[in-house]
Amino acid sequence: MDEYLWIKYAHILGATVIFGTGIGTAFQMWAAHRSRDVRGLALVTRNVVKADWIFTTPAVLLQPLTGTVLAVSAGYGLHDRWLLGAILLYGLTGLCWLPVVWIQIKLRDLAAQAAATSQPLPAAYDRLFRWWFVLGVPAFGSVLVIFHLMIQKPTF
């Protein structure tokens, strides 16, 4: 397999990790949140934060590198609107994801404190969770549109 295909493989794998880890951890967070079980929430939020550092962060860093090599190798540039759109949506996803990472850390800490003291979740937890959810909607939507742009390469 030539170098281009290895880079393409890495790019697709990175996109899969970003979306797969994101949807998996989002489901776990949502299910744990709905349960209101502070011990379960403490465990899930701890694991979600770990998953973001172990899986999502490296994939997020890999995508622009592999994407740039692929685009340049294939002769695409920013004059290709589908590529520019994908880059802008990737930026939007990042602008949503960065505060989500911070929120997840705060949710983890609040859930751990509630579990350690056998107290219910504080109101701050619910406010932060709403923001976590609101920021997740455009992030996931953007990734789906990026997939479409990468596959179809539409002309506008």
Rank of each mutant, 00 (worst) to 15 (best):
I7C: 01
Y9M: 14
H11G: 10
L13M: 15
T16Y: 02
V17Q: 03
F19P: 11
F19D: 01
G20W: 05
G20D: 07
G20C: 04
T21F: 05
A26F: 00
F27T: 06
F27P: 01
F27D: 03
A32N: 08
H33V: 01
V38A: 06
R39T: 14
G40H: 07
L41Y: 01
T45K: 04
V49K: 07
V49C: 06
D52K: 05
T56M: 06
T56D: 00
T57P: 05
P64D: 07
P64C: 12
T68M: 14
T68N: 01
V69D: 01
A71T: 03
Y76R: 11
L84N: 04
A86V: 06
I87E: 09
I87W: 10
L89C: 05
L89A: 05
Y90D: 06
G91P: 13
L92H: 09
V100Y: 09
I103W: 14
K106D: 13
K106S: 13
A111Q: 07
A112M: 11
T117I: 00
S118A: 15
S118T: 10
Q119N: 13
P120S: 06
L121R: 09
P122K: 00
A123L: 12
F129L: 08
R130G: 02
W132P: 05
F133V: 12
V134G: 09
G136D: 07
G136R: 08
